[in-house]
Simulated scan of single mutants.
Amino acid sequence: AMRAGQIDAISNLDPVITLLQRSGDLKIVSDTRIVSEAEKVFGGPMPAACLYCPQPFIDKNPNTVQAMANAIVRANKWIQKAGAGDIIKVVPESYLLGDRAVYIDGFLAAQKALSPDGLFPTKGPETAFRALGSVDAAIAKAKLDLSAVYTNSFAQKANAKYPKG
């Protein structure tokens, strides 16, 4: 749709953004893969790519949730130290869309935005709630105890268990 001129703006993820940028079909106005740009757009740190679980699942399966958090924290720590060549070796071929260079460029563009330790930034939940409220009036009006809908406790335990990843 972007290439055909059917849309004027897009918010998407890689590799789509890198593909469209490389082909000249897209001009990036604000790149939220860059932390400072994301903070300008969202008015604070914006958490993304995190684990979402209903509380009953967490209550029933705390070991599974902890194992998932451990894996993500360890992966985040590895990614911080890894080079593009290291990353490309472990990514399934089907994710590369037939173009390793596009995947590497997209990864390098987003690498610094990844949490180095799997923790939500302190103001992250507030930023996310405000962003959701900006597009949904019901959310904007809601009174929500943000500490009841997110936790860093699993990531903190993972960091204690795997300080080096």
Rank of each mutant, 00 (worst) to 15 (best):
D105W: 05
D59N: 13
N76Q: 11
Q55Y: 12
A82S: 13
T64S: 04
C53H: 10
A71E: 13
I72E: 10
A67Y: 14
P92C: 00
V102R: 02
A48S: 15
R74S: 05
Q66C: 08
A69G: 12
A101Y: 00
K77E: 04
K60W: 10
N63R: 12
Q66A: 05
A75L: 14
I87K: 03
K81E: 10
L51C: 13
A82G: 06
N70I: 01
Y52R: 04
T64Y: 09
M68Y: 15
M68H: 14
N76P: 00
L97E: 12
I104L: 11
L108A: 00
T64N: 02
S94L: 13
A109D: 08
N63D: 14
N76I: 00
D59E: 13
S94W: 13
A84G: 09
A67K: 14
V73A: 01
I72P: 00
A84R: 08
A69H: 12
G83D: 06
K89E: 14
N76C: 10
D59P: 09
D99K: 03
E93F: 01
A71P: 10
N76D: 12
I87M: 15
R74K: 11
N61V: 01
A101N: 06
N70F: 03
K89V: 03
C53V: 07
P56V: 10
V102K: 01
G85F: 06
Y52K: 07
E93N: 06
K77Y: 07
I79W: 05
I79H: 01
K81H: 07
N76S: 05
N76G: 02
P92H: 09
D99G: 00
R100I: 04
W78P: 10
D99Y: 02
N61C: 09
G106E: 02
V90D: 03
D105Y: 05
G106C: 05
K89S: 13
A109H: 02
N63V: 08
I87T: 06
